[in-house]
Each structure stands twice: as C-alpha cells, then as structure tokens.
Design a protein around this nucleic acid. Structure first.
Lengths: 241, 241
DNA sequence: GAGGCATTGTGATGGCGCGTAACTCTGGTT
DNA sequence: AACCAGAGTTACGCGCCATCACAATGCCTC
C-alpha cells in the first residue's frame, strides 16, 4: 500500500495524465482556451470521451492542472535567469532586466499559457492558496533586486502600504524572508522589496500581457522596447545601480 | 424607404436589441463571460431561443456589440475627465492623474466590461479596424498630456520607434493630429506623445487589469495607490509639471 | 382603407460538449 | 491462481448554438 506511488499502475496513470495535458496544450495553442474540449482531446488520443474522467474530474480540473504547470514553468524560467545573473555577477539594474526579460521571453514563447495564468477568472473568483503561492514563486526572485534599492519619494504611499502588509500578513513576511534572508536587518527593506515586486508585477502584466494578447499587432514598436522603457523608469525610481 | 431609420419598426428593433444587451450585461456581471448564453437571455426575457437570432447573428456578434459599447463607454469616461481637467485648468501632471483615475474608476466599477475589452482573444485574432479606432479614442486624450513633456533619456529607444511609426502609418498620424493639433509644429512632439500614450496604456493595463481581475484580493494595497505610483514614475520621466 | 409583405416569433431539429451511470474486461495485487 | 481495483466502453440526459420551415402580426404602399 505504501508503494502505490511507484506501482506500474501509478506510473501508467501519470503518463496518461501527462499525455492528456500535452494534447490539451496543443489544442490551446491552436484554438484558444474556449475551444479546449475534453471530448476532442479524447478523440485525438483515440479514446472515448468519458475515459478522460478517470484522470481529470472535470474540464475545470484539467485547466487547473494546466495553470499550475504554467506557473511552475514561468517560475523555472525566472529561476534560471537568476542563475544566469548570479554567474555574471550582475548588479541590481542588469539583474532586473535579465529576470524580466526571461519572464517576457517565456510569455511570448507560449502566449496561450501566459494568458492562462494572467487571464480573467470568473467574477466570484478567489485564487486558491496553492495558486497564490505559485505566483509568489514567480515574483520572489525580484524581491532581492529591490531590497537593494532605495524607493523614491514618489512611491512612498505604496511603500507605506507594503510596510503595513508585511507587518500584518505572516505568509507574506515568510515569502520575503525566503528570498531576502537579511531583510530583518533593516525594517525598511521588506517594504521596499514588496513595493518593487508589486510594481514590476504590474509593469510586466502591462507590457507582456498586451503583447501576449496580440494587441501590438500592426503597431510600430516591439514589446521588448516597451518593457525596457518601463523597467528603466522603475530602476531609476529605486536608484538601482 | 429613406425613413426606415426612424420607422416604428426600427425603433422597436433598436429597443429590443438594447434590452438584450442589458440582460446580457447582467448575466456577464453575475457569472462571467463564459456563462453568457443566448438561450438563457431569451428565457429571461420571456422569448424563445431562436428569436434572438433576429437581433444578433450569433453569440459572437452579441459579444462584439458589447465590446464596442464598452469601448465607447470607457472613451466617454475619459472624455468627461478631460472636460473636468479643462475646467480646473489642470497642468499636465494633474491632468494625467485625472484621466487615468477616470479610466480606472470606470474599470473598477464594471470589471466584467473592462475584462471584455482587455481580455484575451483567440490565438489568430486581429482586432478589426473598428475596434482599433475605438481603442484609440480611449487613449487619445492622453496624447496632448505627453506632447507637453520632454521624454527622458531612458526611453529614447521607445521614442525612436514611435517616431518611425508616426512617419510610416497615416492612420496613426491622423490620430495624433486629431488630439494634438499643433503637433506638426515640432516633429519631435508626435513621437513623445505616442511614447507617452503607449506607456500609459501599458501602465493602465498593468495595474487596472490586475485589479479588475481580482488579483489584488487579500493583498495589502489598493489599486489606486499602485496606479498613482506608476503614474508618478511616468510623469517624472516626461518631466511633467 | 385594404391588401401585400417584411418583420417578428415559434416549435422542431441537428450537432456538440459536459458529465453520470451501468457494464465489461484486463492485468496488477495478494 | 483468484480476486478486484482501475481503465475503458456504450448509453444517456442536459444545456447550448444555430438553422429551418412555418405562422402571425402589423407597417406600408397603393
């Protein structure tokens, strides 16, 4: 009973789940999330419709799995950029560019998956803790970048809110502590780091989201230039070197 | 035949179309775009399903109408903010805040409609000219704000791209000329105005989009503070007074 | 003002997708 | 070797999109 995890049954099951997700991603890329249909996935795999329900409880369940994977993938892309930045001993400003560039590159390479995680949920939607944590894993590497900066006077209102948030939410404090180990040294560090992370999140969502959604088609600029411009503003505000 | 526009028939038709759209908006607000169903609208109105097809060719067609209305509404909200800023003789910086604030206020008041116009279209999507023009009507009022500023060195790359775009796309040139009549005076003005507009578009999409999608739920900041911080960066970059 | 006809609405129909239920069969488990 | 959990199948009900053929209403023209 302990070995169920490794049993042939379990292995086969996991492989089938994976194949289903692959097929789903293909349909997603080809026709968008609206066209993703369990029935069509089954047909494409040579199965009958209801068979898929052995692996995913519902269409919603499959989408959740795809969303989780997408977050993990995005986080991996950013994490790899961190390693790259470390290797090159980049300063905060260059590091910001490297991390954000990796995020954008991932999003542009797989726009449908990006839209999946930044898309519009149903009205009464609240992100499950699970998803919230994954999102924080993506943005975490940005925290130390801004912890090294000095937020300008123009964003003092945001910094104040971040400070209160950090003080009142243990999960957030733990998140910051995880990525900025020496944050406790100076009580202003966490607020600065959070303010930067939230700002860069909004910046990224702005330029990358528009680009992934195809809104720049036929326009006279590249998403990269726009993002670079935005990051420049942000880096200046934090006086990053 | 000439008077068909004002005939009783046409009036009744237009009223029914409007009622359908109202019902659709209610469903949209309650259950999200995915749950919007012609059948349910019909039932709610006391009609039979196929009757609606006399008024909208398809579900897609209805959605397009809603999207057009939403753009027009957003544009009207910004336009009204312009009048307000004019009345108060606001300078560029305060004007930017007023316009962006109006945009955000509209989006937050009707998040489902905002998501409709900034949401993720299908992969092979290209915005119809019609929609493109309406989007430009929303952003147009921002053009003169930035035409009055001096773009900082950090965004010179973007400005250069905007300059080329302005030179190569007549529709864009006309758009700029429409909102910044004296742009022709100085050839650098259009590029600055466009760069500002694109940047503010991305900023707005970033902070307002996240807020409308409910991503800030449980987080320690308000969308207004975040937006204000972003606008501050932008205004500084353009040295707005 | 009377008939013609465009416009509006209806039920019937087909197709598709979600999700459930009852059943069969295979192969891992014991 | 026997058992049975799990994979897969067909059949089914439901809701929705969209089309068709047909009936009724009432505007518009003559």
């Amino acid at each position: 009973m302990d070995r169920t995890k490794d049993s042939p049954r379990a292995r086969y099951r996991e492989q089938t789940r994976s194949e289903i997700k692959d097929t789903a991603l293909r349909q997603l890329a080809e026709s968008g999330v609206a066209a993703l249909a369990l029935t069509r996935i089954a047909k494409e795999m040579g199965l009958s419709g209801p068979a898929l329900y052995r692996y995913f409880a519902s269409r919603e369940d499959l989408l959740s799995a795809l969303i989780r994977d997408a977050y993990d993938d995005a986080a991996a892309a950013v994490a790899q950029a961190v390693a790259q930045a470390d290797a090159a001993a980049q300063g905060p400003r260059a590091r910001l560019s490297t991390l954000a560039g990796a995020y954008r590159a991932w999003a542009v390479a797989e726009p449908h998956r990006y839209l999946l995680i930044q898309g519009a949920p149903v009205p009464g939607y609240v992100a499950p803790d699970d998803t919230r944590d994954r999102a924080r894993a993506v943005l975490g590497p940005f925290l130390p970048v801004f912890a090294a900066g000095e937020p300008g006077a123009g964003i003092s209102g945001l910094v104040a809110e971040m400070s209160a948030w950090h003080a009142g939410d243990d999960a957030v404090a733990a998140w910051v502590a995880d990525y900025v180990p020496d944050a406790a040294r100076d009580s202003a560090r966490p607020a600065a780091a959070l303010a930067g992370a939230v700002l860069v999140w909004a910046q990224l969502h702005g330029s990358v989201g528009l680009e992934a959604a195809g809104q720049f088609a036929g326009m006279g600029h590249s998403g990269g230039t726009l993002l670079a411009a935005q990051l420049g503003l942000l880096a200046d505000c934090f006086a990053l070197s």
